[in-house]
Design a protein around this nucleic acid. Structure first.
Lengths: 216, 216
DNA sequence: CGGGCGATTGATTGCCTTCAAACGTGGTGG
DNA sequence: CCACCACGTTTGAAGGCAATCAATCGCCCG
């Protein structure tokens, strides 16, 4: 019984102050689309396990990854009726999806829900601005170092991170090419800032060296 | 009497639905700081005339301009207690500043105020994401063309725009150097996409050519 | 008329991209 | 169980685009 309740509790998006929106759990395969740009925004999402990328495409097909969403992150909540970006699973991923109408209802019933929604959006905005700083004013090595440090808190166990995403994903997040990202990793390994036991597994050997590298 | 009321009405920030926050008008000289990063966020602002740039600096001093705020635009409203970016007047500028506590009060009294706040933040987020696409995936000419088109609706009279900002500002907004921006303008003039009667005055001669140029 | 600042133009450098090839690993079928 | 294939990654060589360095121009203001 308490187990049932615990499971039920997990299929929600928590807005704090005891406000939980109930939704349904959903699985997505690697590279499967969760929603597309210009599609009606019917649901909001929370990552349960795995990882999600949100992205936009330029008219000639170049891809810019806007964010990586990790377990616990909420995404897809815009005030717009239509998604302004698309979202895909980076790897096999579980999400909870909640009808947007439930969020709208909660927001009109309880001011704290709107407030929480606002705070989530502000957080996204700060992240986007930090991202703009990286894209506009940093060199390749600096971008990759900043990437590792930015996500080291999130998918880390000690100093070891397991990257769920490919080099192509990192490249499209940082505005670089696959090759340049790979070279930056190799360079960091040669300078003993990191270890690369495998391409997706990074060990931060010298965090302060990374901090210095990142310092655009 | 009616004139007095009209003037008073202008010293407000309008949240829609009849919600107006009263503030005080303020003038800033060219390049004068309005607020700085990490300063307590005591006020929110609306541009009355002139133009404002918001920006962040990397640790070694490189500047990234995040947005240009034009008359009518509201800026400086974050949920954070502290500004995460700084703001300066691009040219002699008038703003209305409203105590943040007034906004917080309005938001806790009226759900529509929070909702409006949320919508403004979402708009900022969309702009930031569009900006990321430009910074991450476009070449120099494409960036400058996108810049002209993006702002052509705002400070335009017909096909003529008066840029309030310097080449340095444009460069720091687009993640380029002054020289590259200048060369892009010259190139556009040579290909008859624009005219440049003076460095701050641009005439859009061939809008579809610009659209094509921008198409990353 | 002279000074200063912003903008333009030119020459060169350097970093990242592009093109190309080899490597390694995980998965599949023989 | 091993061979083979596909795909992601790494590495190398060459080229291109924007940054840098440097000089001139034009304009506003004193």
């Amino acid at each position: 019984m308490s187990l049932e309740r615990a499971n039920a509790a997990e299929d929600t998006i928590d807005l704090g102050a005891g406000l939980c929106l109930h939704g349904t759990r959903m699985r997505f395969d690697r590279n499967e689309e969760i929603f597309g740009e210009d599609e009606p925004a019917e649901y909001i999402y929370r990552v349960v396990s795995g990882a999600v990328r949100t992205m936009r495409f330029s008219s000639d097909g170049r891809r810019q990854i806007l964010t990586f969403q990790l377990p616990g992150d909420v995404f897809g909540i815009e005030t717009d009726e239509v998604h302004t970006f698309s979202a895909e699973a980076v790897c096999p991923t579980e999400v909870v999806m909640v009808r947007r109408s439930l969020l709208e209802k909660a927001a009109s019933d309880d001011a704290r829900a709107t407030r929480r929604w606002l705070e989530l959006t502000c957080q996204d905005l700060r992240n986007a601005q930090e991202h703009a700083l990286i894209l506009g004013r940093k060199g390749a090595g600096e971008r990759v170092a900043a990437f590792l440090l930015r996500f080291s808190d999130r998918f880390t166990r000690g100093q070891e991170l397991d990257l769920p995403m490919s080099r192509a994903d990192i490249a499209d997040y940082l505005g670089l090419t696959i090759e340049t990202v790979s070279r930056s990793f190799s360079e960091m390994e040669r300078t003993a800032a990191i270890d690369l036991p495998s391409s997706r597994h990074v060990v931060l050997r010298n965090r302060s060296a990374l901090m210095q590298l990142q310092a655009a």
